[in-house]
């Protein structure tokens, strides 16, 4: 009986460890999402709106998941350096210049990017800071 109890406790703790390991990414994601939201409010919301709805044809909405997916390796550079060429979002052209945010540290860029790509109906999942940092070193 005693052996049985010890065994089951051992088994339970193994399961708990595995579950908590799997959750590390979820925890990071939640972390990035909450910090990213604050950065979004401070830097992006003025033009792109509280719900990523954009503003007329001045600022595009952030709800075009296809665009975000196709450009997922460029998003970090777009956030940091701005955009000066025209882009097509939801089939509409936008050619206003987006200002860059060079004051953002790599980790800030990563967090706000993860926030945008996982809000407003987007669901692209987690991108770690290390990957964003590499992307930012290779901006065109």
């Amino acid at each position: 009986m005693r052996k049985y109890i010890i065994n089951s406790i051992f088994f339970c703790s193994i399961v708990a460890i595995i579950v908590s390991c799997q959750n590390q990414e979820t925890i990071d994601l939640q972390n990035y999402m909450s910090n990213g939201k604050d950065i979004y409010k401070a830097k992006c919301q003025n033009c792109h709106g509280e719900n990523g709805e954009g503003l007329g044809q001045l600022a595009p909405p952030l709800t075009d998941s296809v665009f975000l997916k196709n450009n997922k390796d460029n998003l970090a550079c777009m956030i940091k350096n701005g955009i000066s060429e025209k882009i097509v979002i939801h089939g509409k052209e936008y050619n206003e210049k987006m200002p860059g945010f060079p004051e953002l540290a790599d980790i800030d860029v990563a967090q706000v990017m993860v926030y945008v790509t996982n809000s407003f109906g987007n669901n692209q999942g987690f991108v770690p800071y290390s990957k964003v940092s590499t992307q930012l070193q290779n901006c065109k």
Partner: peptide
């Protein structure tokens, strides 16, 4: 203006 104007006009 990229700061308060877009919000004002929205």
């Amino acid at each position: 203006c990229t700061t308060i104007c877009p919000t004002m006009h929205r």
